[in-house]
C-alpha cells in the first residue's frame, strides 16, 4: 500500500534520512525502530508532506505522492499522528476531533451531524475523551492528549495511519494503554506504520520492523525475530 524508494530528507545540514526504502502491505503493522536522532521522525514527516524530500520517491496506493503538501496527502487517506501529539491546545476536545474530519465537513454550514457517527465511535473507543469533550485540549494529561491525537486521525477515516512516537513523554502505565489502543486498531484491520523508540513494545506489537540507525535501515525483518536480535540493542547504546 505504501512504497518508499530510496528516500532522502533533512532540515539543514546533512541528510537525516539517507536513502531509506520501505514497504507496508495493506492491513499490516510495520514498526520503525531506532534511538532518538536516528531519523525516524524526519522520515515520517517526509512521507506525509510536512517536509519536502531531497530525493527518492513515495508511492501510496500505486500513485506517487512525493512532495505533495501535507493537507493533500492527508486528504488521500494517509494520515500522520505527529510526534509530540500536537493537539490544538486552545480548542476543545470535540473541536479537535471535528478538525480531523475537516475535508469532508462543510466549511460554513452545520457540520455536527455529518460527523456525529464517527465522533460516537471515538468516544466509545476512548471514553475519557467523551467525558472531557468540552474541555480545552491543552488542559488534558499527556496520555489523554495522545488519545485525542489518535482520535483526531481516526476522524479522517484514514486508510493508512502513521504514528510517530506515540509513547513520547508518557508514563509507562499510560504507554501501555496507548499501545493497547493501537493494537485493537490493528486488529480491526487498520494499516499502521509505527515509529517508536521503545523497541520492545514496538516489536511486540508489529508484524514487521525496520531498525533505523543514523538515517539508514540497518536491519529489517519479522518483528518476532528482531526482538531477539542483540543488534537491536546495539542500535541504541552502541
Amino acid at each position: 500500500m505504501l512504497n518508499v524508494e530510496n528516500l532522502r530528507a533533512g532540515y539543514s545540514g546533512d541528510d537525516a534520512v539517507r536513502g531509506i526504502s520501505l514497504e507496508v502491505a495493506e492491513g499490516s503493522c510495520v514498526a520503525l525502530v531506532g534511538a532518538n536522532g536516528a531519523g525516524k521522525s524526519t522520515l515520517a514527516k517526509a512521507l506525509c508532506g510536512l517536509l519536502i524530500p531531497r530525493g527518492g520517491r513515495v508511492f501510496f496506493d500505486g500513485k506517487e505522492i512525493t512532495g505533495l503538501p501535507a493537507s493533500e496527502v492527508a486528504r488521500r487517506g494517509l494520515c500522520l499522528c505527529p510526534e509530540g501529539r500536537r493537539v490544538f491546545g486552545p480548542l476543545t476536545v470535540e473541536e479537535n476531533l471535528f478538525l480531523g474530519a475537516y475535508p469532508r465537513l462543510p466549511s460554513f454550514g452545520p457540520f455536527r451531524r455529518a460527523a456525529s457517527g464517527d465522533l460516537k465511535r471515538i468516544y466509545r473507543m476512548f471514553p475519557r475523551l467523551g467525558e472531557r469533550r468540552l474541555q480545552q485540549a491543552g488542559s488534558l494529561s499527556g496520555g489523554e492528549q495522545q488519545m485525542l491525537a489518535i482520535g483526531r486521525v481516526l476522524m479522517a477515516r484514514p486508510r493508512f495511519m502513521v504514528l510517530d512516537e506515540p509513547s513520547m513523554g508518557l508514563a509507562p502505565v499510560v504507554v501501555k494503554e496507548v499501545f493497547e489502543a493501537i493494537r485493537s486498531l490493528h486488529a480491526s484491520g487498520m494499516t499502521i506504520l509505527l515509529s517508536e523508540q521503545f523497541a520492545k513494545i514496538a516489536l511486540a506489537l508489529s508484524d514487521r520492523a525496520y531498525i533505523i540507525e543514523r538515517g539508514s535501515v540497518v536491519l529489517e525483518g519479522a518483528s518476532k525475530g528482531l526482538a531477539k536480535n542483540p543488534a537491536v540493542m546495539a542500535a541504541y547504546l552502541g
Partner: peptide, 25 residues
Amino acid sequence: YTMAGIAVQAVSADPEAAELCGVRS
C-alpha cells in the same frame, strides 16, 4: 461554530498539525 472558523483557529495554534488534518493553512 463553523468548520472554517475552527480551522483558522487550528492554523493559528499549530499550522503543521492543521495541515495534517487536511486544512490548507
